[in-house]
Simulated assay, not measured.
Amino acid sequence: MSNKIKEFFQLGEVGGYFIRVFRKLDPDQKSNFNLRMMHGINRISILVFLAALILWIIRRLV
């Protein structure tokens, strides 16, 4: 039973990306302008989505 619950709440590759996108890049890893801009846009879109989700939940509860 406990193993099934752990499997249900695993983040997987996509969830790992949502956490990884907010970390600083490894200094040993080569980075270019396009990659940094892509991660920046992804950060903004994740934050806007979470803000909209929170507002939607608050409006449903009130």
Rank of each mutant, 00 (worst) to 15 (best):
W56I: 04
R60G: 01
K30G: 00
F8S: 14
G40F: 15
V21Q: 09
L50H: 05
D26F: 13
I5R: 10
I41P: 01
L55N: 15
L35F: 15
L35I: 12
I5D: 12
L47M: 05
I54A: 08
I44Q: 07
G16S: 10
A51I: 10
R20S: 05
G40R: 10
I19V: 15
F33Q: 11
D28N: 14
N3Q: 08
M38T: 14
R36S: 03
V48S: 13
F49Q: 02
R36Y: 04
L25F: 02
K4F: 06
K6A: 08
Q10F: 14
I58M: 09
F9C: 02
Q10G: 07
K30Y: 03
F22C: 01
S2A: 02
F33V: 15
L47R: 05
F22A: 01
D28H: 12
L11H: 12
P27S: 13
F22W: 10
W56D: 04
L35A: 07
G12D: 02
F9K: 13
V48T: 12
I5G: 12
N3Y: 02
W56G: 07
L11I: 10
K30R: 12
L53G: 08
F18I: 00
R43D: 00
F49S: 06
F22L: 13
F18Q: 15
R59N: 14
V14S: 09
A51M: 03
L55C: 08
V48L: 11
L61P: 00
I54D: 07
G40M: 12
L61A: 03
L55H: 07
